[in-house]
């Protein structure tokens, strides 16, 4: 009986330890959220969302231009990285062995590991320099490079999970390979691919470094992709470093807003993966 008691005590001890450590690992997130929401949520109101920043010394003002800018940048990034990433992911899932697929796989992994500031410099050299000015387009391209590896790898993983007998069913009906890919494999993997794209969006929406030399920032509203735009992370970066209380307040509000946007996309992506899951 003593042995049993001792074992139960040990069990409780380890169980407690596991709970404690799990709690510790989510505590940074909770603390960040609490802190930012405490400082930021009260800043967010209708005029914060719809007005442009005011000059220093003038009360109020909003971040409408940064919201629009972030949406434009993410839109461009999705437009470029999604088709490229899905095709590459499809290739990798279909062609699992061989030298070239392995090279592509390693290259994609390395691309994912490249520091975001370097991606910004590359986009500067490729787009900003030849065009002679900062632009939303160059920022979107920088973000698309950040996003591409995530889309490639998540597409590959999702499509690898589709059982090979689904493909055989189609081929055995005399359906050519390319039609099988377009009409059977991709539709079966679509919810997963979509959730990968959304995770990619939530990842790049908060990037600052790649935008420093590309989208650059803009005090005014801009819808033209060939001109500089502001973005929420850029605005936070610039305003948080300014000496003005009013701007710092806006930076807190923008941080809270950015986190809400990222969390929302993240949650939608999880739901998309689950709700529209194709039962295999």
């Amino acid at each position: 009986m003593k042995g049993l008691k001792w074992r139960l005590a040990k069990d409780r001890l380890f169980r407690g330890l596991v709970y404690l450590l799990s709690l510790l690992s989510i505590s940074p997130l909770i603390i960040i959220l609490l802190y930012i929401f405490k400082r930021g949520l009260k800043v967010i109101n209708w005029s914060f969302l719809t007005h442009l920043p005011k000059p220093v010394g003038v009360e109020g003002g909003g971040v409408a231009n940064a919201i629009v800018g972030t949406i434009i940048l993410v839109f461009i990034a999705v437009l470029i990285s999604t088709p490229l990433g899905i095709w590459a992911g499809l290739y990798l899932s279909e062609k699992r062995r061989g030298l070239f697929p392995e090279v592509v796989r390693v290259a994609v992994d390395i691309l994912q590991a490249i520091p975001s500031i370097v991606v910004g410099i590359i986009a500067y050299l490729w787009v900003v320099k030849p065009m002679g000015r900062f632009s939303a387009l160059s920022g979107g391209i920088a973000l698309s490079i950040m996003m591409l590896p995530m889309v490639v790898r998540s597409t590959e993983e999702v499509l690898k999970l589709i059982p090979p007998y689904i493909k055989e069913a189609s081929l055995a009906l005399g359906v050519p390979y390319w039609r099988t890919v377009l009409k059977v494999i991709i539709p079966a993997g679509l919810p997963g691919i979509l959730s990968g794209v959304l995770l990619g969006i939530s990842r790049v929406a908060g990037e600052t470094a790649p935008l420093l030399f590309t989208a650059f920032g803009n005090q005014f509203m801009n819808w033209n992709i060939l001109k500089p735009v502001n973005a929420l992370p850029l605005l936070i970066f610039n305003y948080a470093m300014s000496p003005y209380e009013e701007w710092k307040r806006l930076a807190w509000g923008a941080s809270a807003l950015l986190i809400i946007m990222v969390l929302t996309v993240n949650i939608i992506s999880r739901l998309a993966g689950r709700r529209w899951k194709v039962q295999l």
Partner: peptide, 19 residues
């Protein structure tokens, strides 16, 4: 593809298209 339309096949594991 023509051969496979003339000679149909059913597999070990039922494999209806899930979508």
């Amino acid at each position: 593809t023509l051969v496979r339309r003339k000679i149909g096949m059913v597999f070990q594991k039922p494999n209806p298209f899930p979508t």
